[in-house]
Design a protein around this nucleic acid. Sequence first.
DNA 1: GACCAGGTCCTTG
DNA 2: CAAGGACATGGT
Length: 211
Amino acid sequence: MSGSSSIKIKSLIRTLNRWSGEIGWWPGNTDEVMIGAILTQQTRWENVDRALGNLKKRGLNSFDAILTADIQDIEDAIRCTGFFRVKAKRLKSLALYVKDAYGSIGGMSDIPTGQLRSGLLNVPGIGEETADSILCYGFFRTSFVIDAYTDRMVRCIGITENRQELKHLFEMNLPKDNHVYRQTHAHIVEYAKKFCAKKRCSDCILVSSNE
DNA sequence: GACCAGGTCCTTG
DNA sequence: CAAGGACATGGT
C-alpha cells in the first residue's frame, strides 16, 4: 500500500525516538518474560510484577516448575492479575507445549522466528500479541508487537487500523534490529498512555501534517 | 460505583 | 466476518 503510509510510519518512529529516551522494558529471563506475556493480557504491568514476585517466592517462576505445579498454587500466586483461572491454565498449556515441542526453553533458541511464532499461536491462550511479545522480548527476535496502544495511536495519524497490516508496515520500515523493535514498541505504549485517550489523542505530536 | 487495564476464546447474528 | 460476552482483580 501506499508509500504515504510508510512515510507516516517513519515519521512516527522518528518523533517517538526524539520524544522519549531509552526505556528498560521487560527485563528478566526468558521464562519470566513468557510468563509475564500471558499475565499481562488485559492487565496493568504493576499487577503482573507482583504476581511474578509471588511466583518466584514459591519457586514457580519457570516452566519446569509450572509443568508439575499444583494449578491451585499457580492461581493463588497470580490472583492479583485478574482472570487468574484462565491464565493459570494458559501457563500450564505453554509449559506443556514447550516441553513437548522443544524439550525446554533452551531448545527453542535455534528455531527460526516464523516457525516459533506459528507454534506459539497454536497454544491455547496465546494470540498474536502474546506470541510477538514472547518473540521480541523473550527471544530477541525482530517480530513487532501491535497492541491496544498501537491501535489508539494509529487512529490519529490516519493509516490502516488492521493489526496485521500494521505489523507488516512497522516491520518494513524499521531496521532489522531487536533493540530498535523493543524501544519503538515501548515508546508507543508510553506515549499512548500519556496522550491517547480511547477516542482520540490530545496534544498529538505524532505526525505534523495531515494528508 | 463506574470505568479501565500492554488479550484471547467462544458464541451469535 | 463483525460484534458481544466471559474471564476477575486492583487502581483511579
